[in-house]
Each structure stands twice: as C-alpha cells, then as structure tokens.
Design a protein around this nucleic acid. Structure first.
Lengths: 214, 214, 214, 214
DNA sequence: TATGAATGAGCTTTCATTCAT
DNA sequence: AATGAATGAAAGCTCATTCAT
C-alpha cells in the first residue's frame, strides 16, 4: 500500500533530482554572469523546464541563490572534514590539497554574488541563521586542520589559527577570480601553488625558532 | 575665438573638473551599491547635473565604470611609486603602509563590480588595452617594492616577487570585503594587521636560512 | 454495477455535495477578496481537494463564479418567495425584513466581481441565458411583494413596481459596500434602517392622497 | 529671462495636458474593464505614449487610480456647489439635475474599482487623508442642497439629510452600473428619472403633514 | 552645450489551465 | 476519478539610452 522503504516516494526523488539540476545550472550561470545577470527565464531554458517550475522549488530568486551558497558551503566543509580524518599525512599537505580542491572544483565565489544587493542577500541569509552556521562551520573546520598541524609541531603555535584561515581563504578567493591572475606571467597552476606555499612559509615553525627554543 | 594660449583650456578645464566630479561620485555610489544598483539618474542628481550630461562624457555606463577602474589603478600605482622613493624605510614597513592605505582609503573593489556582467566589462576594458597596462603597472610597482626589500636583505630572494604580490593583494581583497571577516571574532583592524604580517612572515628572510647559507 | 434505482446517485450525490462545498468556499473567498484575488489553488486547499478536481466541476474560473451568482440569485429569490407567502403581515414589513436579510446574510456582492472582466463575465453568463432568467426572476419576486402591498392599500399604485424594486436594490447595494457608509456619522445599522424607510416613504400611500381620493 | 507670467512654463502646461490625457483614457478603461484589467501597456498605447511615460506621472498604478478618483470627486463636488448657488430654482429640481449630470458624465464608478485590492486601495487613499476630505466634502455638498430644500419648505425636516444623501447616491450607483438596469424593461433614461423621483417622494413634505401641522 | 522627458527592452513573479500519473 | 507538477502568458515596474529643445 505504501511505497517500499528503499524507494522513497519516487516523486520525491525526481523532485530532488530536478532541484539538483536547477541548482547546478544556476551555479554555473551565477559564476559566469553574476547575480543580476542570472535571468530566470534563461535558467529555465537551459535546464529544459518552464520558467514557473523553478518557482515551485525556489519561491524567490533570492532563495535559489541562497540554496546554492549553502550547498557550496556544505560541500566545502565536508571536504575539509574528510581531510581532517587523514591524520597520517602532514597537515600542510592536507591543507594544500583542500585548497587545490576548492580552487579547482569550485566556482567564482566572488563573481557569484555580484549584483545581488549583496548586502541584503547576505543579511537575509544571516537572519535565517543557516548562513552563519555554515560559514562559521567552514572556518572552524579549516582552523581544526591548522590546529592539527600545530599539535604535530608543523605550524607555529604563536600564529592565530583563525587569522591563518582568513589568509588562506584570501588567497583562494583571489586566485579563483581571474582578475589578478590573468595579468600575471606564468601558468595559472604554478601561481596557485606558489601562492599557497608562500602563506605556508609564514605559518610553518621556523628552524630558527626551534633553535631558540632550546 | 580668442582663447589665450596659456588658457586654451578654460572650457576644457571645466570639462575635466566635471568629469572628475562625476567619477568621484560614481565611485562612491559604486562601492556602496554595486554596478547594477548604480543608477545614472541618481548619479546625475548627486553631482548636480543633468542625466544627459553624463553621457556627454561617458557614452555608456560601462565606460564610466571603466574610467573609475583606471583612475583607481592609477592612484594606487602612484601611491606605491611614492612609497618606492622612501628608500630609507624598511621595505616591509612601506609595504604594510601601502596595504593599510589601500584598505582604508579604498573602495569596496569587490562590491564595485557586482552586477556588471563582469566578464563583458573586463573584456571590453581589455579590448581597450589600457586596462592591461594599468593592472600590469600596479602589479609591477608593488613587485618593485618587494624587490627593494630583497636587495636590502629583508626578503627572501627565492620567493617569486609576483607571487608575493598576488598573495598580498589576495589578502587585501579579502579583508576589504566583509564576507569572511564578519564571521571572525576580534577587531577588524587586528585581523587585518595580523593577516598582513602572516604573509610577511612567509616573505622575510629566515634566520635559519641565513645560518644555512653560511 | 449494482446501483439501486432509489440510490442511483451515490456517486452523483457525492459529486453534488462536493460541488456545494466548492461553491460555498468560493463564495466566501470571492466576497472577501474579489474575483481576481480568488486563487484556484487556495480555493482547492480550503475545500480540501486537489486543484484539478475543481476543473472537473467547473471548466473555467468564470463558470465557477457564474454558478455562485446563480446560486445566490436563486437563494434570494426563494427567500423572497417565502416572504410572499406570509400574507398576514404588512408588505412593507416583509420587504424590510427581506432587505435586512439580504444585507446581513449576504456577501459583498459589490466586491465579489471586482477584477473580473465584469463585462465579459456577465456577457458570458448572459449568453448562457440562465443569468437573465435568474435576475429577472429575482426582480419579479420582489415586484410581486410590492404588488401585494399595493393590493393591500399600503403602497401607492401609481408608482411603477419595477422602479421601486430598482430603488430598493440600489439602497441595498450601496449599504452593502462600505464606501459611502464608512464616511457617515452614526451607526451602520441605523443608517441602513433609516435609508430603507426613506425609500418606503416614497412608496407608501399618502394620507393626503387618501384624503383626496374621498 | 524668465518665462512670461502669462505662459507658465509651457513645459508645465504640456505636462499637465498629457497628464489630463492619461487620466481621461485611464478613466475610460477603468470604467470599462475595472482596475485589474486596466493594463498599463494598453493604456500607454491608447494614449499614444510609451509605457514608461505613465510612470513619470504616476509612480504606481495605484497612484494613477487614486488621481482619477480624486479628480472625479472634485468635479462632482464643484458641480454640486455650482448648483447650490442657483437658489432661485427649487432644490428638488437642482438635485435632480445634479444626479442626472453625475449619471451621464461619470459612469462606471462601481466597476472602476473592481479588482483593485479595493480594500487596500481605499485604505491607502484614506490614509493619505485626501480621500476622506473629498468624500466628506462631496457628501456635505449634497447635504447642503437638501438643507436648502428643507429651509424652503420643500423637504421634510424630520428626514436626516445624510440619510437622504446616502439614498440618493445609492440610486446613482445602482443606475450607473448596468447590472440591474440591463434587466429592466423600458428605457434607461426613464428608469433613472422614475427612480430619482421615487426617492424624492419620500423626501418631500407631505400635504398631510402640513395639514397636521396646522 | 546641457537637459530631462520619453522610450521600451527586459526583469521577476503570479496563476489559470493542462495532463501524465 | 483525482491529483498536483509543470507550464508560459501576462503584468507591473525599472532604468540605460536617446534626442528635441
């Protein structure tokens, strides 16, 4: 009489799938063109559904974007947490891996929110709390990785972990948006690696410090 | 008819002045509200001129913003060049000063381009070439400061100057937009200073290296 | 398959019941929000059925509203006819009672058709003829009451009954919509009663006339 | 240097003219199709201007309709006031003339507001006060006419003037919207006249009363 | 030269109606 | 028979850009 437990309502699954489809396409358009230039009709067309259908899933454009942000933050956080489990590898390598993964897989975060009334959008998300949790969660996950490095003697304990997180994300953000990188000589990948390592240099325990500590 | 040679420009000078006025006001609106929410009519009103007059100076909204970007880049570059002259001060201090100045005096660069079709905007600027020059100029000016530091033995010569520049600007950008910083504990100013210094730590010549070099 | 002849209607009766349910709820929404703001989905939800089901009964929103109007006219007419039976009471009192009942129990007739393309709606109803019959029936039922009054010597025979009917309904309509009444001093109920009586004054046989008739 | 006093800015006059044009056409469409079915684009087309131009004069559709209402009330009031001046004619005749003029000149008051969220619209107008003044002014102007009739011994002083006003407007409203009248036999004009007179009968001083007063 | 009235493409959002399940 | 997901026409409103004055 009722749906088998292994098949949670089919309908629901299809709905979820379509939602995923919308979000993915929207994320692409968002990172390509920014909030204002994401046109609902165009989005629908690309997904291959009617304009109104989007509104069945996301009552306002704002909500659509909010969902994308949350999804992104969630993915990033789980990525980082996964890395936090591999305690056999040095923290610095794991962090670098995380950063590369973020940079590669991810999406012009910077551009994404262009032209939303970003202030209002974020404000709204913030009021809804979930954004706060997600962002805080992301930052803390990253900080945990750094703390692992400190505990392992890799990183300098005098450097505030949260400050390091900010610096790392700063580099990610900048490398992600092509603004500057586009103007630099050399391969993009090289620049990325070198930049990440530069920040690490500031974070690593210095031989001299160890010396001094004796 | 009788334009004196020393003042061929009365007209021209007024024109230039007004152009400056437009740009200044536009820059403010831009950093406050982003590209899409910069409304030409509102701008004209604030400047105290007619809407159409703006179009006498900048045929398209895009051009107006392009001019602002160029002007900003120019100012930054000259700021940095000025600092490059004060060779009596340590490079690291001068760089930090530059960074603070950029961050303080500056303009939500991040928000400024929100809602432009950034790709198209930049593409257009690029086609006009001048953007390329300006950005390259800015990066190179900064790189020169770093090179000075290297020459003075402050900075590690093995670190690529351009990479360092990218990292520095990355931090600036991130600290400028409140996205992350807003989620951090502590005073904004403290976070900024700490972040800058973290990058410097990675740049400074390490005592241990010196030791090893002996 | 085995529908007993006395109850061929189990299905049919249920269908009729649901139709009644839809109409009642629709009438409420209609009088509260007007035609345009009557949303089919909301209606379905309130009735507790699926949106599509409504369309099984009424192929178009227009038809739904048409049915409501007819039902309303029918009810009013039967109300009046019932009153026409109580010949022991004075016609004027019975008419006043009818009017109060209409005003009280009734439904912002005025608001109900807000936002329909009333012309088209009525046109459509008219094409279906039935509307004409209903309205005529209503007016005639009321006229019959007045004629009773004339026969009883209560009302002046020189006043055209139909004109009196129009005037009476005019007052009802106006008193029903709060537009004017809201701007008047005094209690709503008092205004209503006084207005009705004013029209009656014009309808009653005048003592002076009687005098003259002697 | 400044515009001659007899020619108040030409611009301003043209603007006023166009505004008048918009209002007139809007009033027609409004009375024909009701608020919801008044489509801004269609209105613009009929007036022969661009859609946006309307918004230059009336920032919201609501404002446009508000202006129409005010204009209408103003015209009515001044019509009535003018009539109030002709004290040489009997009040009843002047009132009848006013009513005919109202009915002829303005038609679908009733239909005009259909489908606005009338509640909100009126609420808004009411909050803005101006509506209150206008409507009160209109009712009072009419009441003044009736008072003149009372003073002249034409009308019965025991009938509340405001109640009479309500009844008169009730008739106007009803006769204006074709709902009922369309279903009546006879000429529209005749019905109108007869209805008005019926109400007057209720208002006039009765010979019998005079008799009694002796 | 400077203006701002006029324009209309373009956007988000709503909702009657259809139709596969 | 009953449902509600999907659709897309339609509508109000904004604002970059033009152009008559």
């Amino acid at each position: 009489m009722n749906a088998s437990p292994t098949q949670p309502t089919l309908r629901v699954r299809q709905r979820k799938e379509r939602e995923e489809l919308i979000l993915s396409e929207a994320e692409r358009l968002l990172s390509e063109h920014g909030y204002q230039n994401l046109v609902m009709e165009q989005l629908a067309e690309r997904v291959g559904i009617g304009k109104g259908t989007i509104y069945l899933h996301f009552p306002r454009k704002e909500d659509l974007v909010g969902a994308i942000v949350e999804r992104g933050l969630e993915q990033l956080t789980s990525n980082i947490d996964e890395m936090a489990g591999r305690t056999e590898e040095p923290a610095s390598e794991r962090i670098e891996a995380v950063m590369h993964r973020i940079i590669d897989g991810h999406i012009g975060w910077t551009r994404m929110f262009e032209g939303s009334d970003a202030r209002e959008l974020l404000e709204g998300l913030r009021r809804g709390q979930s954004m706060n949790h997600r962002v805080s969660g992301l930052l803390q996950a990253m900080a945990r990785l750094i703390d692992q490095g400190k505990a392992a003697g890799e990183f300098d304990e005098t450097v505030d972990s949260m400050v390091a997180v900010v610096a790392l994300f700063a580099v990610i953000r900048s490398l992600t948006s092509s603004n500057l990188v586009g103007h630099l000589p050399g391969e993009r990948a090289d620049i990325i690696s070198a930049s990440i390592r530069l920040v690490f240099r500031g974070l690593l325990v210095r031989p001299a410090d160890k010396e001094a500590a004796r």
